[in-house]
Amino acid sequence: MGNIRKILLSNIIFFITFRATITLLGVIGMDKIEITIEKTLIERLKNRERDALEELYQLYAPSLLAVSIRYTTNKQDAEDVVHDAFIKILNNIQHFVPKFEGAFEAWMKRITVNTSINFLRKKAKLTEINGHIYDEGAIPDKGNEESSEMPQQIEPEAAIKMIGELPPGYRMVMNLYVFENYSHKEIAEELNISVNTSKSQLSKARALLRKKVAQNYKRQQIVE
């Protein structure tokens, strides 16, 4: 009987101490320690505050534009994609719960990537990605790749231009693999192609880019 009383008493004391700690943390605001600017922005967007829209655009439009411009061939299209992506983001913001720091931006980038892919699907009929619409002869030999001289860094605008000059299928695989860290399996599922096709497209994209980079580098050296 005495033991039961002790157990009950200790449980009651533990419960009271726990509640008091939580309440105290709540009073001094320590329970909200994890709330970041990102979370605040999300909450404001959920509350439909007009100022939050501007903040959202100013904070994230450049990085989303950087994503979309890699898929589209020109800036105007990229801005259209970003606009559509933002609308999708606003439509789904009520259901979004950030689980880690940076999740919001990652989520938005994912939406932008999907919007870009849909944009390209409509524009370039990507159902033909498995077909033979690409000029195989344009792909350089492996031997040429090894012997090409490569710069340490290239200008972002030049890099965007080179990626933009890739055929849509190559561009998509290249972007998803290199920049979005998709695996070949994920790319295959996303684009509805086989894994081997994805690998093949990436290889060809790399070869084309290598050729372009080398040409560009040589041109620069001549100018200098």
Binding site: L65, Q152, I154
Partner: peptide, 15 residues
């Protein structure tokens, strides 16, 4: 891949 990744790491065009 590394070359393009590093070149575009800080690329943020202004809309």
């Amino acid at each position: 891949d590394q070359l393009f990744r590093s070149s575009l790491a800080d690329y943020k065009p202004v809309p």
